[in-house]
Amino acid sequence: MNGPLIPAAPPSPGLGESFPEVLRRATGIAALSPSSHNCQPWALARLESRPARRAAADLLGCPDDGATVYLALAADRRRSLTALPAHTLEMRLSCAAYWRMLCRALAAQGWALVRERPHEAGGAGGDSRLPGGPWPRDWSLLWTAALRRTGEAAESLTALDAAARARRTNRGPYDDGPLAPELLGALARRTPAGGPAIAVRHLTSIHERGVFAELLARHGGIDFSHPAAWRETHSYIRWTPAAVRAHGDGFPVAQLFGPMSARQRLAKRIALAPPVMKVLCRFGYDRSLAGGLAAEVRRTPALVLMHFADDSPGLADAFRGGARIADYWLHAASAGLALHPLSVLVQHDAPRRMLQAQLGLSGRLFFISRVGRPRTAFPPAPRSPGAADHRTV
């Protein structure tokens, strides 16, 4: 007697499809990557012309046999933060997080990396070894890679897409109950990208969170009192829905301060204007804002810190760090957790070194975030119309 018919599992999305369609789907997922100030500084090119393919093949040592696909990732300086020296690393981390999510989405559709290499000069004006060219003058090349079809999905594209859509910054209050050690351990272990060169540490004890909060209260106002840094940060605040739609990036004001009346919004807009902020900081407004954030940190069940073993990380280190951030955040989102990065103490060297000394962290601290179960839902951050686009060279 024949057994029951078992329907075949549906094929994974992307398997067997043309690479342009696979790339379109992958860039749609990667465009949801986190970036500092939500500036979305990445730029992607598919190297398709004969000169571009030949140059990339020579650069990577691959045969140009027609079965290999070549991609190049750059930082677009028009959408990059520049006010502080530390922003060079932050832009690299942001582009690297995008790259990690892109590569995971491609691998989930049966395309794997076979060769890749960094362009170390890419963070400071470009690289003379550009494959193919000519390139947009505002692009700084960071990474070139070769991919080939494997025919097997490395992970579920549906699950990856769901995690990417669930991933968002939530600046609201979190449940103050402790997070399970097993969950935090899994978060640290489920981020294999980076290897021993990158360490992940969670601060969960009242003492450790208190050490961090105290330092944040004392030094967290530096971003408001630093004229160039605050002008740049302020330029990314989107005060109206129309501004959100027009720019597609930055911070919608409601995500920074929650619901406000028209009068409250106007008062906040006046207070945060750079010329007004400069005056208010003389009266301690910057310290007041930092104190409020520190109080929120004390109520947060956990903080995650990531640091390089090397105190002068290069581009390849930054790409491992960005991959670490992306993997951690996606896994946290799948577990129902939210993150709220606290970048100010890694953007300024003096407080960063103090924090590392107090917590016994070696190397270079590059990521700090609140972690917890949010009490209120936050909408997704806006995306620029071109965030999922790529250029063909």
Rank of each mutant, 00 (worst) to 15 (best):
A332M: 08
P11R: 12
D223K: 10
S35F: 09
F378M: 15
A228Q: 11
P85I: 00
D349T: 06
A332I: 07
S362A: 15
G172H: 05
C39T: 10
N170Y: 03
R137P: 04
G28R: 09
A56N: 05
M91Y: 02
P380C: 08
L84M: 11
A271S: 14
I6M: 12
P380I: 01
S12Q: 10
H348Y: 12
A199T: 15
E296T: 10
D286W: 03
D175Q: 12
G284H: 07
F366E: 06
P385W: 04
P379M: 00
Q109A: 15
A159I: 05
A318S: 13
D175P: 00
V276P: 02
T144N: 06
T27C: 14
A357V: 01
R287A: 15
R189A: 15
P181T: 05
R149Y: 07
L60D: 06
R149T: 04
P385F: 09
G363H: 03
A74K: 08
A318K: 02
G125D: 09
L141I: 11
L266A: 15
S94R: 00
H87D: 15
L266Y: 08
P301G: 00
D310S: 15
S94M: 01
G386H: 13
G220A: 02
G16H: 02
P181N: 01
A74T: 06
L187G: 07
T191E: 09
A262N: 06
N2E: 13
V253R: 12
G386C: 09
T169Y: 03
L361C: 07
R168T: 04
D76W: 05
G66R: 06
P131K: 10
P118T: 14
A97S: 14
Q255G: 10
T82C: 11
A246H: 07
E208P: 00
L305D: 03
A377V: 11
A52W: 04
P374Y: 03
H226I: 02
R54C: 05
Y328T: 09
V304M: 03
P227A: 01
A332R: 04
A243R: 12
N170S: 12
H247A: 14
A9M: 11
D58C: 08
L216C: 04
L183E: 09
A273T: 08
A326M: 10
R77G: 08
R287F: 06
Y98R: 06
T191S: 15
T233G: 03
S225G: 10
P7I: 09
P196I: 08
G3E: 13
R167I: 03
S140P: 04
L157S: 05
H234L: 01
A121S: 14
R287K: 14
G122H: 02
R189N: 06
E214K: 05
Q264D: 11
S384N: 07
G132D: 12
L81Y: 01
R104S: 13
R148L: 07
A333K: 00
L339P: 00
R383Y: 01
W99K: 07
D349N: 03
G110R: 06
D58K: 10
E48I: 07
L89I: 04
F212E: 02
R77N: 09
P385R: 13
E208G: 03
A96E: 02
Y98F: 15
E214M: 07
P4S: 11
R25H: 05
A381M: 15
R104C: 12
L342V: 03
Y236N: 10
H87Q: 09
A52Q: 06
R373S: 09
Y174V: 00
